[in-house]
Every structure is written in structure tokens, then in C-alpha cells.
Design a protein around this nucleic acid. Structure first.
Ligand SMILES: [Mn+2]
Ligand SMILES: [Mn+2]
Ligand SMILES: [Zn+2]
Ligand SMILES: [Zn+2]
Lengths: 154, 154
DNA sequence: CGTCATCTGCGAATGATTCGCAACGTAGCA
DNA sequence: TGCTACGTTGCGAATCATTCGCAGATGACG
């Protein structure tokens, strides 16, 4: 049981147990953050999670959110996902998936890891490189934006 | 001839012609930046490019570099590549390729686009999504870091 | 309860990028 | 060879996301 490999902690009690086992303390900000992540379902920025937590404990500071996100990621409970320019987003590692983000309209499509298998295999075979398809999104153009192609002269 | 689709401008004169055709002016900072990008070969941050340009024209400001990088990207002359956390990097669009970045040691492997073809095809078929495999790197673990796996107890 | 290391709130610092604006320089034309 | 128009630059301040330092608060365990 090594940190960063855990995929199955998706209930509050599981995560708290994991924290406890690490010698980490179960504090109010921490518990509220985990609850927010579990309830969230989708991607949330640190700022969004802070707002959620603060609706129940107004004094929790954004820097505390960042510190706890860092620790939860280290434990493998959550995953940080970068979509490109802006703020990083986070979600439960149990809900792992790949991401396609449209550079035009910003829409995000969540796709099963399975889509990345051929790429993962080739990268492994040719370069010995083990791809993690979760941490960054693939950019491109969604079907809608491909259709409305710059009002094609006509 | 639409902006953002140009792949072939790799000589200074080509790029200058492209600028001119757009009504953009050929200024000293701009020309020096393009020269730096051509000479660079690999990935460069705005800061690195600024240093290079400033070695010949000391007063060129970093914000001017950013503004010109933005314009050159818009014209499809260069491509912005984000590796994850830090500063964005840039290189000639003519030298397009994919990127594998080791989360452990930071090493970057440049790979042919061809590696992404299966992924591109599936994304297109299943989601109508056209992937651009250049703008973001794939994270993971390089062969060296996979070998030295956390000093495996024994 | 008491001890003590871990956490937290807070504000300041950092790093990357963007913005506002007045001065400047390029390109087209007289 | 100017003149003009407007794109561009230098500069500093602003913004956005994230990290740090520190003194005081709090959870764990006995
Ligand atoms: Mn996701
Ligand atoms: Mn590259
Ligand atoms: Zn779109
Ligand atoms: Zn490595």
C-alpha cells in the first residue's frame, strides 16, 4: 500500500481512514474539502472548492485548500488535471478518465482510458515510456466547432 | 490561405512575407524574435527567447515578446506547447511533433505525430473530435525513472 | 486535561502573463 | 524625401494562480 497508487477511496470514511493511517489529522477544513470533492462529481478548481467549503466554514482560507489538495493528490485520493491555460482542476482518482478539450469553445469531453491504450502501448514499446493519460487534456476541435468552420466563404 | 493553417513558413523571408501580407509591420524586435525561433530548433520559453533577442537589442521588453509570440501563433508560424505546470514553450510549427514528459525527472521526448494516429482516429469516429496532439504534452514516467522505481525494498 | 506536532488563517511573495498608455517607427503616399 | 496614419513598442502596473512564512489554534493520544 504505497501512496499515490490508491484508486478506490471514494467514500468519506475511506479517505479519513487513509489520512489517519498516514498520521495526518482529520480537521474540519480537510473533511469539508473531501466531502466537496465527493459531492462534486466533475472537475473543480481550487477556487470553486474553496467556495463550497466556505459555504459551511467561512474562515477556511484558499491556501488551506491548496495545501490539502496537494496532500490528497500525494495520497492518490484525487487527481489534478490541467486543461491548458487556466487554473488546475481536481477530482476523485476513483473517477479517472481522459479529457478532450475544444480549443475553440472550451467544451470538455470525458472519455474512457481505453481510448489511450494504443498510444500507451506504442509509447511503451518504442520509448519505454509509461503514459498517464489523466493529468493533461488533449486539445482539439469539438464536432460542433468543426461544423461551423469559420463561416466557409459561401 | 487562412491564418492558423500555415505549416511551411520556416525561413525568415517566408515569415516576413506572411506578416507583410497580413498588414503587420516588420519591426526589429519581431524580426529578431523570428530569427531566434528559427535558430532555436527546440522548445523555448518567452523568457529564454527574450534573453536571446535582448542579446542583440537590449531594450526589447518581455511583454513585446509575448505579444509577438501571440501573433505568430495566430498566423500558424509557431506553436505554443504547455508541458504542465510552468511557463509555456514555443517552436516553429514546421517542426511539429508530440511530447512525452516524465513527471519524475522532467525529461522530454519528442515523438512523431504518427504515434497519435490511432487515438486521433478513435476520437474522430466516436466523438467527432479532431485532436491536435501538439499543444499539450503527455505526462508519464520515462524508462530510466521506471527502472529506479522507489528503490524497491530489497 | 496536557502535551506537542500538525494545521490553519492571513497576508505577503512568487511566477507567468496581460494590460494601459504615451512615445515611437514603419509603410504607403504626396 | 517628407507627412501621415496606425500598428507597435517600452514600461510599469495589474492580474491570475499558486506558494510561503509565521504565529496562533487544534487534533491525537495518553
Ligand atoms: Mn476529469
Ligand atoms: Mn515540441
Ligand atoms: Zn468546440
Ligand atoms: Zn524520468
Amino acid at each position: 500500500m504505497r501512496a499515490g497508487q490508491n484508486v478506490s477511496a471514494e467514500r468519506l470514511e475511506d479517505v479519513l481512514a487513509l489520512l489517519h493511517a498516514q498520521g495526518d489529522r482529520v480537521t474540519t477544513p480537510r473533511r469539508l474539502l473531501i466531502e466537496s470533492l465527493i459531492e462534486a462529481g466533475g472537475h473543480r478548481t481550487a477556487e470553486e472548492l474553496a467556495a463550497e467549503v466556505q459555504s459551511r466554514a467561512p474562515d477556511v482560507h484558499l491556501s488551506t485548500i491548496y495545501r490539502n489538495l496537494e496532500e490528497l493528490e500525494r495520497l492518490g485520493v484525487i487527481e489534478q488535471v490541467r486543461f491548458g491555460g487556466g487554473a488546475a482542476t481536481y477530482h476523485l482518482a476513483a473517477a479517472r478518465h481522459g479529457h478532450l478539450v475544444c480549443s475553440e469553445c472550451g467544451v470538455t469531453i470525458e472519455v474512457p482510458d481505453e481510448l489511450f491504450r494504443p498510444l500507451e502501448r506504442t509509447a511503451k514499446t518504442r520509448y519505454g515510456f509509461t503514459i498517464d493519460p489523466h493529468h493533461l487534456a488533449m486539445r482539439g476541435r469539438c464536432v460542433a466547432c468543426s461544423a461551423s468552420e469559420h463561416s466557409p466563404g459561401g
